[in-house]
Design a protein around this nucleic acid. Structure first.
Length: 963
RNA sequence: GCCCGCUUAGCUCAGUUGGUUAGAGUACUUGCAUGACAUGCAAGGUGCCGCUGGUUCGAGUCCAGCAGCGGGCACCA
């Protein structure tokens, strides 16, 4: 073995072997355990969040596989309607100077598939690098035939159940992408803007209470006035209530529109008069419905002013309530250009009262970044409130459990006032809506045109045309857990693996995906008793990985980190190219370059997959935010190296040596193998670690599992146990050496299995060398090969916890630490052997001393140990106290008097304070009468101990002081 | 405006049902080529546990209020 662990030497070939051996596939034996991956977007590449979640999923899967479960990690990607269409549109624009319309729908879709087949594999390559034990043969894509069939089936059935409907309603229209988007895809952002006060003349000589012949409305969107069909005032507003039922003459279009009384108008806001534009504002739309006001659409799909308006009644039918005429001077103007022009016109007519600075909230498309326009269009909707009930109950009654639990609140609060879900998208890339129209726009929903013709008995000469729109990508993602398993066919896989066991995901998609998945799954999947089946039993919500400054990682900020760069390393130059190349906003490049140079002046070093995974599990706490810390990664790379070198030591001392390995049929007997105290101690400590790791995995506390593994490996196995084996291996008897060698390989072999779910590569590599030396009988392949990943996970065994060995060894450690401590503080070289005198030795100490003098001498570098007679205070010495025992190191020539007095003073001060505090507690009558006895006894014992030690130290100090 | 979360060592974070002297990594100080490892070894210092009050024999932990930070929802003519 090399002196330093080099991950790149082993990772990729190991993964290839595992994959070829078929270890990732379900075994078909044992209870099932299934995780469906949140499908990454096909246009994307892995970021730290993916690496984080996938490490957790793989750790769970590997753990359960080793526990004997029939494990399936179902993977795939989603087709990401808008994102993918954009990528391909940009590509053909750049390469061929063409638009998708130049291609036409079918040819464009072919082009998208072509792109997907070329570039869609990026993520799966990255996932392999993370070591994910995924059954690749079952990889799915939301646009695959099977998945499309499921989507179509769901749509048709929901329609038949009256849970899907089509309607002309206001939607969030993205004028850049020319499609509707759902509420969830709208981001409301604060913005500085203006408030315009406009004067609308009253009709028929009406006057306000103040005697004006006009009303003033306040608006942030003056351009929409072309679509106004009413003015709302509060019915209790003394200023205007008498005008209710009267009309104003809308300027520029000379439209007579009514003044209505509605609580929506707030007397304290603006002027108290609200212009009502039902076709261009969600609130106005509600007001319009209440007062039966017509809807006048004035925008085209680019959000530019139409030449002639479209007028509808509140049922969405065409209406001739008003003239469709619009002022020609604004026709074709973009909404923001139109705004200026209309304000200017009002000004010109003397109807602009004032303009105020105003802070407002504007809706932006989360992908396009442009302001969303409420627009009246025909769209398909899911009646979500009917589906939400069972989905809420499933969480309420504990069938589905959120981990950590607090996320339930977020889920409930969203489900409580859930809006109907607009599922149609005006895109080409996606699942086409299975609805057809005849020449009279009558709609038919079915799986195919043939099915519809048969079902509705339509003559061949009736022309049907399919709806042009596609479904929201999340519509297909909502079916993910069951559609990937073969639904609507009732497959064996579906029976075996559904409901899945756990969903691992970020809390940011709890509404987009998690809630919708629960609703859809429960509606379409019933168990044999007809009870709704849930998609997963647990939802483990991970935190969000942020950069070192706590900022969210995003492309535009240029602070994203590719997990592969953590694994392989990257130079500063390449990192800069990666971050600033191919940017949507090149002007940010300078800032990003500066930031990157500051954060990674020397690029990123290589750390290996295992170190990355260990880091990720270590930060998997219950918190919501995780600030990425390169120092942590570095620390865990060192940890891998530590494990590597500890293993080197074990192998150097065991390979080609007699390790007391039991051969078939022969048990280890005490005659050929003798375990030292250290051996028995480490076996017990290891069992405790096994227990902790099980508990941690079972409760999703991956940080605690990592911590336990780290602590055991470094602080117990390496720092103490390996050191304690040296005296035995170098000077012990045959049987002692055999016993220690046996323990070395036993513990290391099992430790590797215990760590394997988190660190798959390094553990497999070392394990292959260690297992032939150990007693462990691995499950073998036909060709005699084997892999750690399909071996049994270590189980806690109480019988191996030798409590006396643990107590005794703790004493040995204290003894050694006490002497090292004096060495350290007194500047005595660790190389210099020193004589030690013992005072006040009791029987137990004597026994421990007799049994372990080899350990003590070796680890504390002791020259000699002499026991003082009861009445002998010994020479002037530096002192440490363990229980009754005083350990003396004669000062002669080694130790400075003042230094030792100072050291003793420090210890005495501390002990005095402790004793004082404890004495205080015990003299508090309330404490003594109310605290549990165990606590009181503990305090008493503590006081006795402190006083005894204190007394010894004080005596010692006095003795030195008189020198 | 409503709801949720966070605040612990210089930094990043643990801290179970309240119970010894609040921990880890990292950083820092000192010493060390000792036979697995300098990506190392040994020793060491490091804390108004955000603030205020309450409950309790006892509070980092439970309760209330406040402050700061973050998130979600709603409103915004």
């Amino acid at each position: 073995m090399e002196k330093t662990f080099t991950p790149s030497d082993i990772e990729q070939s190991l993964y290839k072997t595992w994959e070829e051996q078929g270890y990732f596939s379900p075994t078909g034996e044992g209870d099932s355990y299934c995780i469906a991956i949140p499908p990454p977007n096909v246009t994307g590449s892995l970021h730290m969040g993916h690496a984080f979640q996938q490490t957790i999923m793989d750790t769970l899967i590997r753990y359960q596989r080793m526990q004997g479960k029939n494990t399936l990690w179902q993977t795939g990607s989603d087709h990401a309607g808008i994102a993918t269409q954009m990528v391909v549109e940009r590509k053909i624009a750049a390469e061929e100077d063409k638009t998708r319309h130049d291609y036409g729908r079918d040819a464009f879709i072919d082009k998208v598939w072509e792109w997907k087949n070329e570039s869609g594999g990026t993520i799966s390559k990255q996932m392999r690098r993370l070591g994910n034990s995924i059954d690749w043969s079952r990889e799915r894509f939301t646009m695959d035939d099977g998945m499309s069939e499921a989507v179509q089936e769901v749509f048709v059935r929901l329609f038949e159940d009256d849970l899907i409907y089509r309607g002309k309603r206001l939607v969030n229209w993205d004028p850049k992408f020319h499609t509707a988007i759902s509420d969830l895809e709208v981001e409301n952002k604060d913005k500085k803007g203006h408030m315009w006060h406009l004067r609308y003349p009253l009709a028929d000589g009406a006057k306000t209470a103040e005697g004006h012949n006009y009303l003033v409305v306040a608006t942030t969107r003056p351009e929409t006035m072309l679509g106004d069909t009413g003015i709302a005032v509060n019915p209790n507003d003394e200023r205007y209530k008498d005008l209710i039922g009267k009309h104003v003459l809308l300027p520029l279009v000379n439209r007579l529109i009514p003044i209505v009384g509605d609580d929506h108008a707030d007397m304290d806001k603006g002027t108290g008069c609200v212009k009502i534009t039902p076709a261009h504002d969600f609130n106005d739309n509600e007001v319009g419905k209440r007062h039966n006001l017509p809807l006048i659409n004035i925008f085209d799909h680019d959000a530019a002013i139409l030449t002639t308006a479209e007028i509808y009644d509140t049922k969405g039918e065409s209406s001739d309530a008003y003239s469709t005429e619009l002022p020609s001077e604004f026709a074709g103007l973009d909404r923001f250009v139109a705004r200026k022009a209309i304000v200017a016109k009002f000004d010109e007519l003397g109807l602009l009262v004032e303009v105020k600075e105003h802070d407002l909230v504007a809706p932006y498309g989360d992908r396009s970044g442009v302001i969303i326009e409420p627009l009246l269009t025909d769209q398909w909707y899911v009646r979500v409130n009917k589906l939400a009930g069972p989905a809420v109950d499933a969480v309420k009654d504990g069938q589905i459990e959120f981990v950590p639990k607090q996320y339930e609140n977020l889920y409930f609060s969203w489900m409580r006032d859930i809006q109907d879900w607009c599922i149609s998208r005006q895109l080409w890339w996606g699942h086409r809506i299975p609805a057809w129209y005849d020449q009279n726009s009558k709609v038919y929903v079915g799986r195919t045109e043939e099915e519809i013709r048969a079902k509705y008995d339509l003559a061949d000469d009736i022309k049907l045309s399919q709806d042009d729109d596609v479904l929201d990508t999340w519509f297909s993602s909502a079916l993910w857990t069951f559609s990937t398993l073969g639904w609507p066919k009732q497959t064996e896989d579906l029976k075996t693996f559904h409901p899945t066991d756990v969903l691992v995901t970020g809390f940011d998609i709890i509404f987009f995906w998690v809630a919708r998945m629960i609703m859809m799954t429960m509606h379409f999947n019933k168990d044999e008793n007809g009870k709704a089946q849930i998609p997963f039993k647990k939802i483990y919500m991970t935190g969000l990985i942020r950069d070192e400054n706590g900022d969210k990682m995003s492309k535009s900020k240029g602070n994203v980190i590719d997990p592969l760069d953590m694994i392989d390393g990257i130079s500063l130059e390449d990192l800069l190219i990666k971050r600033t190349g191919n940017m949507m906003q090149p002007k940010l490049a300078k800032k990003i370059t500066k930031l990157t140079k500051k954060e990674f002046p020397n690029g990123i070093e290589s750390h290996g997959t295992d170190a990355l995974r260990f880091t990720l599990t270590s930060v998997a706490t219950t918190g919501r935010d995780i600030s990425w810390d390169m120092k942590r990664l570095e620390g865990y790379r060192n940890f891998c190296n530590k494990l590597w070198n500890a293993s080197r030591y074990v192998l150097m001392n065991t390979e080609e040596q007699d390790c007391g390995r039991s051969t078939a049929g022969t048990d280890i007997t005490e005659t050929n193998l003798e375990l030292s105290l250290a051996d028995r101690w480490i076996l017990g400590q290891f069992q405790q670690t096994v227990k902790t790791v099980h508990e941690a995995f079972d409760t999703f506390r991956f940080d605690l599992a990592s911590q336990a593994l780290y602590e055991f490996t470094w602080n117990q196995f390496c720092d103490w146990y390996l050191e304690l084996t040296k005296p035995v291996l170098f000077n012990g008897t045959e049987a002692q050496q055999r016993g220690t060698r046996n323990t070395l390989v036993t513990v290391l072999e099992a430790l590797l299995r215990l760590m394997h779910p988190i660190m798959p590569f390094i553990t497999e590599t070392i394990w292959q060398r260690v297992v032939p030396l150990s007693n462990f009988a691995p499950a073998l392949n036909e060709d005699g090969s084997c892999s750690i990943m399909v071996q049994e996970f270590p189980q806690f065994n109480q019988a191996l916890c030798d409590t006396q060995a643990i107590d005794d060894l703790e004493w040995v450690k204290q003894f050694i630490v006490a002497i090292r401590n004096i060495r350290g503080e007194m500047d005595i070289s660790p190389n210099k052997p020193i004589p030690v005198l013992l005072k006040n030795i009791n029987e137990q100490d004597q026994r421990r001393l007799d049994n372990n003098s080899q350990f003590l001498s070796a680890l504390a570098k002791i020259e000699s140990i002499e026991i003082l007679a009861d009445n002998d205070n010994g020479p002037a010495s530096a002192t440490a106290v363990i229980g009754d025992l005083s350990i003396l190191i004669p000062m002669a020539g080694l130790i400075d008097k003042e230094a030792e007095i100072a050291r003793l003073n420090k210890a005495i001060d501390k002990l005095t304070q402790d004793a004082q505090r404890t004495r205080g507690k015990l003299s508090n009558e309330k404490f003594v009468s109310k605290a549990p006895e165990a606590v009181i006894n503990k305090e008493k014992a503590k006081l006795v101990e402190a006083e005894s030690t204190l007394q010894k130290l004080v005596e010692q100090k006095a003795q030195i002081a008189i020198l």
